[in-house]
Design a binder for these strands. Structure first.
Lengths: 109, 109
DNA sequence: CATTTCCTTCTAAAATGTAGAACATAATAG
DNA sequence: CTATTATGTTCTACATTTTAGAAGGAAATG
């Protein structure tokens, strides 16, 4: 059974890491968040969340290849762990179950 | 456009109010939360969340009928506002959209 | 090697989430 | 009528998440 709590923003970030794959590093994630949400986030918000998710075992990370094409600091690339996926799946199942019980919302978009 | 933030726990409580209808008062909601989640909550957690949700305009409340059948204090019954429903719908649409973009999760349960 | 660009780490504060004690009210036994 | 019991709410306090932005690190290039 899964115990660990997953905040709302945390869930979205976790999902974005899954969606972005190789491109899952803080700056890119923040961009993606803004484009999908139409809401702005600070880079700090994304970073602290990523760090927390890694601490909980939902994510892993490693620094991008030493030979970057472009200048600038190396990227830290994040990947979802199997555990992270499980947590995401659980959260999804729970939400879906609640929505089904709420008539007005049950109609799929 | 909807601006206000909706936390994770807040969303679940809001949903439970919708699901419980006439029965949506703190004690009952806490019970329902526990039975659906298998996780325990304190009554205080539920109350402060309900109050916050009401402050944001997602919920309304009024004291239950003066003539209660059983002893005890009167219940405060909560109802979702149209605005609350809209927020819920938005949150749902966003989540569904993210899930669809994450292959591994897209398979409905 | 100074500058630009790209990205992370650190610091701090506001909002949410959580628990439990204290308090209020109604029914009813005696 | 008042002590007791059952049912709920309010209040107090603190932990965790969420959020912003400043500070700093590293690679490319003129």
């Amino acid at each position: 059974m899964i115990e660990t709590r997953l905040g709302d923003f945390e869930e979205v970030i976790l999902l974005l890491v899954g969606i972005l794959g190789e491109e899952a590093y803080a700056f890119r994630i923040a961009d993606e968040f803004e484009s999908q949400t139409k809401r702005s986030v600070s880079i700090g918000a994304v970073h602290s969340t990523l760090t927390r998710l890694e601490g909980k075992g939902f994510l892993e990370s490693n620094m991008g290849s030493a030979t970057s094409e472009r200048g600038g600091r190396r990227k830290r690339i994040f990947t979802i762990t199997a555990y992270g996926k499980k947590v995401l799946q659980n959260a999804k199942d729970f939400k879906v179950s609640l929505w089904q019980q709420f008539p007005t919302l049950s109609t799929g978009k």
